[in-house]
Nucleic acid binder design. Structure first.
Length: 423
RNA sequence: GGAGAGAUGGCUGAGUGGUCGAAAGCAACGGUUUGCUAAAUCGUCGUAGGGGUUAAACUCUACCGCGGGUUCGAAUCCCGCUCUCUCCGCCA
């Protein structure tokens, strides 16, 4: 949620931001509701003040005295007036909340204009794109794929998009998780194990609800949501808490399985491991002081990039345009790795600044020593990294003439060998 | 899953219908005083949302786990829920 005061005081800037994000939302209706709401608050509160004052007087009167009984009569009508006003206020508050939850976060000035992914700006690229004459075999066409990934049985056991990782495949996935966590540890980012299910309040705080409800698996019986990313439990770890200024900046990372319904996806996007319903990911979350959050975003991106560099995978960093970034983000970089076999870029990381959009919903604050007031922290998060697509890039880019896959140097200690042989 | 007990401010803990936003103690912060690693003493000491102001001052309202209800009036009475603790059951 955006600071309602900012919307009230500079609606034009907000309008401009919403336009840049190409999101349909009625700001004027929200502002009107806000105005009505505040008017009614004043009314209700002054009625209550009157009631309170009368109560003090009544407390002094002897019970059952004529004055007392008389007072009860007048107070009764006041009481019912308050109740009526309360009901309309409640309705207004609900409308207000709904309207305000549907206002996106405003993009930072450095965010490029644009409607769709075609307008994203290539911010940086690294590594050599392998030449055309190499073997262009998409991983899903490897003839020995079944020995490391079993899609068929995954479909039998659960459904499409829930593959089994087998043997070297399972070990490679686990090696990547370990490698990413070890790297984070070395960088001084504390590791967390997180719950895989969260309640409604948590899903609301990080913005999955009400916006992306259809993307989450929902356990109806217990009203819990399977996490689509470790960001959700991690960010909610400090929900409703006031932090000490000296704790900031605070960095945490967590490995988790991520569950996504991916309703509406089809075609090339979902072939092989490109898009699955359950995947592993290591996620980093930062809680920082507002004035540092954009520098923190750059260092977060650089950290995630360093992982791809160590793996020797060619990638590019995209600065997302207004229309293609998320609802809650103010600025976002995506990292895409080049998959030679498919001749396409695969997104493996997304690093974002949310400013106070999440912390306002989640009520995560710190006491500012300068103002002496509680201020909202800025939150950021970034994948470091998502496993399956890195897995894909390693397979496709590492494919050798003899059909084996040469593994990145840094993974050799984890895998106990330097290549995966066809079986 | 069953039975019982409980949930009050940073903490401990009073408060069973009316000046209770809430006693008292501890902790914290500021001052004074004495001065050997501290004591005494005075004061301050929750959060949020309105109104107001250039900004303050000032002022109003809400909040005693959460949501309803009763009442002129609820921390206090009633109902539902959540969580914690103890016992029983089950279980990796």
């Amino acid at each position: 949620m955006i600071d309602p005061k900012i919307l009230r005081e500079s609606p034009d800037a907000a309008r401009e931001g919403i336009r840049k994000k190409h999101i349909d939302c009625d700001l004027d209706a929200a502002l009107k509701t806000d105005e009505d709401r505040r008017k009614l608050i004043v009314e209700v509160e002054s009625l209550r003040a009157e009631q309170k004052l009368a109560n003090v007087e009544m407390a002094k009167l002897p019970k059952g005295s004529p004055e007392f009984l008389d007072k009860i009569g007048t107070m009764k009508s006041l009481s019912s007036r308050i109740k009526e006003a309360d009901v309309s206020l409640k309705e207004l508050e609900e409308a207000w909340t709904e309207r305000y939850l549907n206002i996106p976060n405003l993009p930072h000035e450095s965010v490029p204009e644009g409607k769709s992914e075609e307008d994203n700006v290539e911010y940086k690229s690294w590594g050599d794109i392998p030449k055309q004459e190499q073997y262009h075999i998409p991983h899903y066409d490897f003839d020995w794929l079944d020995s490391i990934l079993d899609f068929k049985r995954g479909t039998k056991v659960t459904g499409a998009g829930f593959p089994f990782f087998v043997g070297d495949g399972a070990r490679l996935a686990r090696s990547l998780v370990s490698f990413f966590l070890d790297q984070a540890n070395e960088a001084g980012i504390q590791e967390m194990g997180v719950p895989y299910f969260v309640n409604e309040a948590s899903a609301m705080a990080t913005g999955q609800l009400p916006d992306k409800e259809a993307q989450m698996y929902h356990v109806v019986e217990d009203d819990l949501y399977a996490i689509p990313t470790a960001e959700v439990p991690l960010t909610n770890f400090l929900r409703d808490e006031i932090l000490d200024e000296s704790e900031l900046p605070l960095y945490r990372c967590g490995y988790s399985a991520c569950f996504r319904r991916e309703a509406g996806s089809y075609g090339k996007d979902v072939r092989g491991l490109n898009r699955v319903h359950q995947f592993d990911k290591v996620e980093i979350v930062k809680w920082v002081k507002p004035e540092t959050s954009y520098d923190e975003l750059e260092s977060l991106r650089e950290y995630s990039e360093s992982l791809l560099q160590k793996l020797g995978l060619p990638y590019r960093a995209l600065l997302m345009c207004g229309g293609d970034m998320g609802f809650s983000q103010t600025k976002q970089y995506d990292l895409e790795v080049w998959a030679v076999g498919q001749q396409r870029w695969l997104e493996v990381s997304s690093c974002s600044n949310f400013e106070s959009f999440q912390s306002r919903r989640a009520k995560i604050r710190f006491r500012d020593s300068e103002t002496g007031k509680n201020e909202f922290v800025h939150t950021l998060n970034g994948s470091a990294l998502a496993i399956p697509r890195v897995f894909v890039a390693i397979l496709e880019n590492g494919l050798q003439a003899d059909g084996s896959v040469k593994l990145p140097e840094v993974l050799v200690p984890y895998m106990g060998k330097d290549r995966i042989e066809p079986k």
